[in-house]
Write a protein that binds this DNA or RNA. Structure first.
Lengths: 188, 188
DNA sequence: TGAATTATTGACCAAATGGTCATAAACTAG
DNA sequence: CTAGTTTATGACCATTTGGTCAATAATTCA
């Protein structure tokens, strides 16, 4: 019994996420968010709270979409080796294309925000765990010992995040390929 | 034949580096730099150019001191396994102490700046290479094949950077320990 | 001593920042 | 149609931002 929203909230949050993803939190201004969303400042503040709330919402959206897409791969068809290879291939491919400079929003948030922002840290922490668990489960048909699977999963997450740092730092794609290959070598 | 500097340039650049290290580039304001250095704004601008120049100088200083300290370990005494273990132990230890929140300035710079800042990217790139080469050389007594050593070194750098992302993201220290252990497992 | 040169100081600046709010518009239940 | 409720609009705000500059203070060379 009131005026309805004139915008698609999901679309707006996608556009907000893309800005934070590409530029980071501090380098993103409200002007950027206004421009990307197509809304006016007042509406943006009305729908979400403030810039920080928007960032956390964007992070959650990233988890629900992009991270989930990775987890879907890990839960899907194929050998453990094949699935894990695909994670790294995504990094290599997007590095080679070189169009989108954002890298991985989860990694970006971890390094830029988590140390000083408890809310972001909590979000990053649970997403990391989600990713690790999915890798563990992909590994489980091959590794009976659960602790062993957990340790290897932790390790693969590390290598994956590291490849994200390398990719943005301009390291040659071969280094990421080497990282992937050594990871796969440890997957039975 | 003119008025001499009244401050120790090396000390000032150390303090500038510490601010950027802890807060990142965008979140650091000139006020912060003024406060940390003890100089006044005019002097800071007079001695170094602008904020960006200060950041690059800080990054170079980080390379010359902190990264070099890591490389010194890799060039020093002990088995390859021991030396590489020590790199990771530094991460684990500083995570456990939890006092300084900066993590690794090289990683921070790579994710925050390298994608959009060519100067930072170049600096990050060469520092990554330096680190990789040092690891290769630490490995060389044990791995005859040079390509093989290079690939393993690339991989270790990746895992190391990844552990830095995990550490800031609040992942349990055990994950970093697992990462280290699996790395060492690959070192002959 | 004095001319020349560089460093220090802090007031100053335009622009950008994140955020607010009164008003107008759009809708629904009665 | 109307009362009530939510949304949209954009002008507005204090504060902070990175950066400049004219005046003053040290210093050295001649």
């Amino acid at each position: 019994m009131a005026r309805p929203r004139q915008f698609d909230e999901a679309r707006v949050i996608e556009s907000l996420m893309n800005v934070f993803w590409e530029k980071g939190y501090e380098a993103t201004s409200m002007r950027d968010l206004v421009a990307a969303s197509g809304l006016l400042k007042g509406s943006l503040y009305g729908a979400f709270g403030d810039k920080h709330t928007m960032y956390v919402a964007a992070l959650k959206h990233y988890d629900r979409t992009r991270i989930q897409a990775g987890i879907d791969i890990l839960n899907g068809e194929g050998s453990a080796r094949q699935k894990i290879a695909r994670l790294f291939d995504n990094v290599i491919e997007s590095t080679k294309r070189g169009l989108f400079a954002g890298g991985c929003l989860l990694c970006n948030a971890s390094l830029e925000m988590a140390a000083t922002d408890p809310e972001v840290k909590a979000e990053v922490k649970t997403t990391i765990r989600r990713l690790k668990v999915a890798i563990m489960e992909a590994l489980s048909p091959r590794i009976a010992n659960e602790d062993q699977a957990a340790a290897l999963a932790a390790f693969i997450v590390s290598a994956y995040f590291g490849s994200r740092v390398l990719a943005k730092g301009g390291a040659p794609a071969a280094m990421i390929g080497d990282t992937r290959d050594h990871c796969l070598q440890l997957v039975p």
